[in-house]
Amino acid sequence: MDRPPTEGHIIRRYDGELDHLRLNVLEMGGLVVNLLGNALIALKTQDEDLAHQAVAMDYEVDQLEVDVDQEIAKIIAKRCPVSSDLRMVMAVSKSVSDLERIGDEAVRIAGLAIQLIENEGGEPNSQMLRDVNRIGDMAMSGLRSAIEVFDIWDEEKALQVIENHKAMEEEFQADLRHLLTYILEDYRNIGFAISVVLVIKALERIGHHAQNLAEYAVFQVCGEDIRSQQP
């Protein structure tokens, strides 16, 4: 893949349109990474303001998704993309909807953070949150790598993201068991534990969406649809 995927058309405006599409996805990716980062920090540091900021960022993400969808409709109508261009447009179209969902999950985490901060008032539950930090890091690194793979194709990294999600699922199961032991220890932990379960579930979903993003990148570059074919 020696040529940038959007370049080389005789009609140069077409290059520009595809490039713009690509940049929009990257911008959306950057926003979503920030959103998730803020939500996780807010949860970790009990920073309610930061959590509210994260919730507010989702509007921009949603707006970008709408913009990209409109651009895609225009490109299909005007340029009839084929071959690698067609695969790129399809990959972009699917990627933005996954990015938007990642944004939603991150907002859910921020919302739960706000709830925890308000209700629990700094109860000694940092141990339960330790699991969240670990799976949170995994989700974050998966998401970052997936966006990097979309930006600059890297087959190793793409496979890593796809592999990463399996590890995340295992982590998710282990965390569930772990949280259950806290509940068994003391029933008063139930409320908090349920919130933590919702957070780690959201993170697990984000990992899954990151895997989807990597799969779209594989489709774009290799023309292979590898969804639901993973071992």
């Binding site: 087959e155 496979l159 592999e163 570059v221 290799c222 292979e224 590898i226 074919q229 993973q230 071992p231």
Partner: peptide
């Protein structure tokens, strides 16, 4: 081990086309 095997098979399938 199984997952490593599966991954290399997947890798072969995906990237042979390229």
């Amino acid at each position: 081990q199984k997952s490593h095997r599966d991954a290399s098979r997947l890798r072969k399938r995906i990237f042979s086309a390229v």
